[in-house]
């Protein structure tokens, strides 16, 4: 791998980082607070790449011949560097022709040409620009068990005012399991999440909780009972209902809180798909 290729890879990767931060795409992968760091990292890579392309095409280094060549096609994502695209790009040793002075030139770079594995840097670039994988959904939610960490305080503040009162799924589950549902009793609650099919029929309203990135995902699932319409997995729904105890049929370590639904209707997916 020659220096131009290294620089172009950096440019593509930095561009990919900037691309996902340009809208809400990055929220599918990481938490919102990482945005400034991602923007900074992307910018550093783009600047480093452009600077490198510019320097290495305008500043001759000793012992290197300069030759003009036809400008090769550049990927559309990067601006073409300086006008004289000289072949400072070292020749791949395996493909080098002795005539071109390749032996001498590539020798001077052979020790710091990028390793083959660096080609893999293209994978995240392709994944972001071409596939743009969606946020984790029912597949991940169905795989993980519902484990809710014990909260700091053993005293639970009453739910805020409102009828129905909107809470996060994590809050609902924490109150259900660690407060035995006492602070939920007698209130109508509104939950927003996606549909995960429940084994044996019915559905969970579910949400994925992440701290840094989708690799540390933990699902929260709440069983919906009552008159539930049949909805496809991953449909975003709003459930309004009352506390319905917990279902511990899946074992004590994986208690599932229940909501008795008064109404279930589909809604638009939120811009931030995860809870924290």
């Amino acid at each position: 791998m020659n220096r131009d290729t290294e620089s172009l890879l950096l440019l593509l990767l930095g561009g990919a980082a900037l691309r996902i931060c340009a809208d809400d795409t990055f929220l599918r992968y990481v938490k919102g607070w990482t945005r400034p760091y991602l923007l900074l990292a992307g910018a550093v890579l783009v600047v480093l790449a452009l600077l490198s392309l510019w320097r290495e095409h305008t500043t001759p280094r000793p012992g290197r011949s300069r030759r003009l060549r036809d400008g090769p096609p550049r990927p559309a994502t990067g601006p073409a560097p300086g006008p004289a695209c000289e072949a400072a790009a070292e020749v791949d040793p395996a493909l080098a022709l002795p005539e071109s002075g390749g032996a001498e030139r590539s020798e001077s770079h052979a020790d710091h040409g990028g390793p083959r594995v660096a080609w893999l840097l293209l994978l995240p670039v392709f994944a972001i620009f071409l596939v743009a994988p969606p946020a984790l959904g029912s597949y991940a939610a169905a795989r993980g068990s519902n484990t809710i960490a014990q909260p700091a305080e053993s005293e639970f503040a009453p739910l805020p005012a409102g009828d129905p009162v909107t809470t996060t799924l994590s809050d609902y589950a924490t109150r259900a399991i660690w407060d035995q549902g006492r602070s939920l009793a007698g209130r109508r609650v509104r939950l927003v999440g996606f549909v995960t099919p429940r084994p044996g029929g019915g559905l969970y309203v579910s949400r994925i909780v992440i701290t840094c990135c989708a690799a540390d995902a933990r699902p929260v699932k709440i069983a919906v009972t009552g008159d539930t319409p049949s909805l496809a997995a991953d449909t975003w729904i709003e459930v309004v209902g009352t506390y319905g105890g917990t279902d511990s049929s899946a074992g004590k370590s994986a208690q599932v809180p229940v909501i008795n639904a008064d109404s279930v209707r589909s809604v638009r997916s939120p811009s931030e798909p995860y809870e924290s």
């Binding site: 980082a17 996902i20 990055f26 599918r28 992968y29 990481v30 990482t34 991602l38 994978l123 995240p124 994944a127 972001i128 994988p133 969606p134 946020a135 984790l136 840094c212 990135c213 989708a214 690799a215 995902a217």
Partner: peptide
């Protein structure tokens, strides 16, 4: 998704 998340993070 997890792969891109690990790289991005």
């Amino acid at each position: 998704t997890v792969f891109v998340a690990i790289c991005v993070q």
